[in-house]
């Protein structure tokens, strides 16, 4: 099953490679991983999407907790939560029809065109990973020049929080 794990870790050099190294050394999957400092610059927040049986996920959370740099973590999948991913896409638009079609589909998915070139558009979009997948599927593959995805960000709903 797919799990989204949020981790607070010391913002120190090497902390990211400890997490990444743990996953490769123990043969766990990483579907996506994002990390950036929080409002407290000494702490980074990482969102990690992985897949595994309940036993594997239990080991993953235990092994993550065991890393000295990990302060706290939460498996967001255990409760109600919000997930968002950010996407940038560059597409070829050489004809007026193509421009109209892209504009229409971007509107449907509530994205925005943020840059316009001679023969290309750059699109930005936010949503769940599913929604971004659906959007990419809706674009003619031959038109796609680049796809840049941020990886998943997540936060628990309601008063539940992950903080030091």
């Amino acid at each position: 099953m797919r799990h989204t794990i949020s981790i607070l870790l010391e913002n120190e050099s090497g902390a990211l490679s400890r997490v990444a190294g743990l996953f490769s050394a123990r043969g766990y999957n990483i579907e996506s991983l994002t990390v950036a400092p929080t409002e407290d610059p000494s702490i980074s927040r990482m969102t990690l999407v992985t897949r595994g049986s309940d036993d594997v996920i239990e080991q993953i959370t235990k092994q993550l907790n065991k890393l000295i740099d990990v302060i706290q973590l939460i498996d967001l999948t255990e409760g109600k939560h919000i997930e968002r991913e950010f996407l940038l896409m560059k597409v070829n638009v050489s004809t007026a029809d193509q421009r109209d079609e892209i504009k229409r589909i971007v509107d449907i998915f509530r994205g925005r065109i943020v840059d316009v070139g001679d023969a290309n558009y750059t699109i930005e979009m936010t949503g769940t990973a599913d929604k971004l997948d659906a959007f990419i599927k809706g674009i003619e593959p031959a038109q796609i020049v680049e796809v840049v995805r941020s990886g998943v960000l997540g936060i628990a709903r309601g008063s539940k929080s992950l903080r030091v």
């Binding site: 050099s13 090497g14 490679s17 400890r18 190294g21 050394a25 000295i68 740099d69």
Partner: peptide, 14 residues
């Protein structure tokens, strides 16, 4: 050294 030893230490520092 920090990179090479990472999988076989409890923790390491540079």
């Amino acid at each position: 050294s920090v990179g090479i030893s990472r999988p076989c230490v409890k923790h390491n520092f540079l």
